[in-house]
Design a protein around this nucleic acid. Structure first.
Length: 219
DNA sequence: CATCTATTACACTCTAAGGT
DNA sequence: ACCTTAGAGTGTAATAGATG
């Protein structure tokens, strides 16, 4: 499915409260399972859940918790970094990274989660196509963020007191820890470049709230 | 310096994919 | 067929930072 098709579908259900879109059973899952809303959105748009890198044939779906005005209440998760850690350490060309392909064409969907889950709703989406002239400023921010973060990670590894990576920030993009325990253990990241573990747990790319504020101002 | 707010690190659930 | 891992989604406690 292409992003545009999903955008049309989404905008037909934007503003309708969840209890009028989802079944009682689905509503129960939304309350119990913290990650369910994004998955139900994918299913409602006609996507299949998968762990492939991209949601659409030509782009990515990103939903985020916000208030009734669309003000973001959380950072936006992008992807884990363990699979591309050596690309980051070696500062691979931004346009050739999995990160770029993931964020170069985004359908951003704010999800208003105020009060009773029955009254939650999707808000109108924002389509961010980095090739559009109006988003040229975003491209340079993200490119700068990417190389800045790469350098910060290397700095942590080579000169930090523990030799491990730590939270690294750009203007819009951030790398910070994101992992869970399995049998009491995290999932450390191993670097082939250094031939050793460079973290004690997994880390991920996130968009900071500034990203949302900026794309809202551009629209 | 006490209190409020934002950020950071960690926690949790589910699914697909891949190995045995 | 079963188990493990990675990746998608989130929530929240504790800390750091801002503010009166």
């Amino acid at each position: 499915m292409y992003l545009e098709e999903a955008r049309n579908k989404l905008n037909r259900i934007a503003g309708i409260k969840f209890s009028d879109i989802f079944s009682e059973e689905q509503m129960e899952m939304i309350i119990k399972n913290k990650g369910k809303t994004g998955q139900l959105l994918e299913l409602t748009l006609g996507l299949n859940l998968s762990s492939s890198n991209m949601d659409f044939a030509d782009g990515e779906l990103k939903s985020n918790k916000c208030d009734s005005n669309g003000k973001p209440l959380e950072t936006v998760f992008i992807k884990q970094i363990s699979s591309m850690i050596d690309d980051l350490i070696q500062q691979k060309e931004f346009k050739e990274t999995e990160l770029y392909s993931k964020i170069s064409n985004i359908l951003y969907v704010p999800v208003c989660k105020v009060g009773n889950p029955n009254n939650w709703m999707f808000l109108p989406s924002i389509h961010i196509d980095l090739n559009e002239p109006k988003y040229a400023s975003l491209y340079s921010i993200w490119e700068n963020d990417y190389y800045s973060i790469c350098k910060q990670l290397v700095e942590h590894i080579e000169n930090g007191r523990d030799g491990y990576i730590h939270t690294s920030n750009g203007r819009h993009i951030q790398v910070r820890s994101k992992d869970s325990k399995n049998n009491g253990k995290y999932h450390p990241i191993y670097s082939n470049t250094y031939g050793r573990y460079i973290s004690n747990k997994n880390y991920a790319f996130y968009f900071k709230k500034e990203f949302v504020y900026d794309i809202q101002n551009l629209n």
